[in-house]
Design a protein around this nucleic acid. Sequence first.
DNA 1: ATAGGGTTAG
Length: 701
Amino acid sequence: MVGENGDEFVQPNKFTFPSVLKACAKTGRLSEGKQTHCLVIKLGLENDGFVLSNLLSEAMNSTVVQPITTVCTPTGLSPPHPSTFFPELKQCKTKRDAIQIHAKLIKTGQIRDPLASAELLRFYALSDPPHRDLQSARLLFDQMNPPNCFSWNTIIRALCDSNDALQSLVLFSQMVGENGDEFVQPNKFTFPSVLKACAKTGRLSEGKQAHCLVIKLGLENDGFVLSNLVRMYVMCGTMNDAHLLFYSYKTNSSINEAVLWNVMVDGYIRVGELESARNLFDKMPQRTVVSWNSMISGYSQNGFFMEALELFRKMQMENDDNTTIPNYITLVSVLRAISRLGALEIGKWIHFYAIKNNINIDPVLGSSLIDMYSKCGSINEALQLFNSLKQKNVITWNSIITGLAIHGRATEALDHFNKMQEFRVPLSDVTYIAVLTACSHGGLVDQGLSIFNQMVRTNGLTPRIEHYGCMVDLLGRAGRLEQAEELIVNIPGGPDDVALKALLGACKKHRNFEIGERTGQRLLDTVPEDGAPYVALSNMFASQANWDRVAETRLKMKENAVKKDPGCSWIEINGAIHEFFVEDESHIKSKDIRMMLEEMMGNLRQSGLYKPDRSQVFLKVDEDEKESALRYHSEKIAVAFGLISTSRETTVKVVKNLRICDDCHTTIKLVSRIYGRRIIVRDRKRFHHFENGSCSCMDYW
DNA sequence: ATAGGGTTAG
């Protein structure tokens, strides 16, 4: 009757139990009696007079007396574990358990019983990744006859987590009977997964339908449902709807306000409204470490690096019990900003903090730290850390190869690339970007070409635009301009501005005006709003004394709305970041900096080695102004500030957001010699190690 | 008895 032999389950009632219990008593079967007792409790019949009296007589007549005392005192009973009736329901922790339980369910014919196989379904569908087995979960679910609400919730959740979240929406529509199936009423556990799936797949209309059902079922005040509704609207790009919900909810005990606010903060960050996000962050009734992390990573990922660092500092100052203690995710988020700014001292502090607080340096954090050290100019520290890491993955390898590449240490980058293959680490497309970058910066043309071929032929990877960019740079640097142009023409989908700029730069270096002009024109077509190509093209015409074309190019530049990223440089002194723009005089020590700049330029002129390169300044007409604009490029200001703020032995490390210009490059080379200082400048593309009048880039960048 | 929330690399 209760389906123990695989038969249909028929629910017993208060008239069933007296006879069953009597039978147990007559035969002295205690264990069956207890099983029955459990079912009595489960069905809420323990207070029925007839059932109770038979329970007692069953107990009196059974041969084993010991456990019966607990039965006499029913109030002291702990709730029975359902395994009494479904021994299969015992906790399923390992694959072995699962196999055993599964076999038994099949043997006893209970495999179709959603109650009996619930635990097994949970194991297949929701255990941690190594054990998770979606296929088995789906198979088990499909066999259920019919699945109950729990079964639906479990499989919907599992599919939502999978990379085919749309499937969970398909299942949900089956659950609610959209295809003429039986309607199973969803509950508050169903909607979070469903809404999450809508969010993941960006299905606004399905999300809205779910929202309607939520209201119909009166579940909109459940905290989990509510936060997922808001998140669904955020992820579907309708911040307004998210906003409306957020401002109209009524607090109750199931709602975690912090989570709700965090979802909104994250929402504003996603649509790029960092200020609204920050406003909300400042107004939050309670902040958790997640709030801080969201805001910091929001800043980091949207280019607000100074703001990210500032907030991180504030987080440490606030010292709110436990909610402002940086965790693993804080570190990963803030490291990104640190890398971009080149804030080595703070970066080192983060590394130390992780060690001191036993924060596991897994491949993610490890890669971030390697990236930080190399982007902050400390490639040797990056190598040291890389070698000490116990767990490495592709990204860890990619980080160190990229680091070596941008420091111009091409041979070591190749060594690591080879070692990576020895260790059978699967290569990714980024690996190839890293190693091709190394080849192009190191001038290793043949190696680069053969690696590019290996990537396509052996590894079957399709080159991305970035790979073509590396190859154009590689060929251009070697002076193989025709070959580079041929490659450009054959890039599927057309070249991007990076590849074209690489070729244009190469043409300038190798004085090939024919290809240079064609490339310049292509660039103007690709990025007409970018000022740099006009300047380059105009300079090229000027060097040929082709003044008509110069004027024509200038006119074109004026006509098209030209955007120019403002040049910006950073330098870290004693853990504080100083930021400089072109001709920037806003720094407190501006006077001292200006004096230093004058002195530098004076010394340079006296040395007789310096001739200002005016060709790169295009907009300023007045000759004197040209030179002063060059003189006050942000990297020069930062270097000057670095020189007066540190002792002779200290290497001056400057980070620039754009590529360094010829004049600054020449100037800093000479400064390194005249002042006997080591200076490192990181520009948009690579590192320049200046020492004794020369640069590690060998004047090609 | 079972099921549900926000932050993370190259």
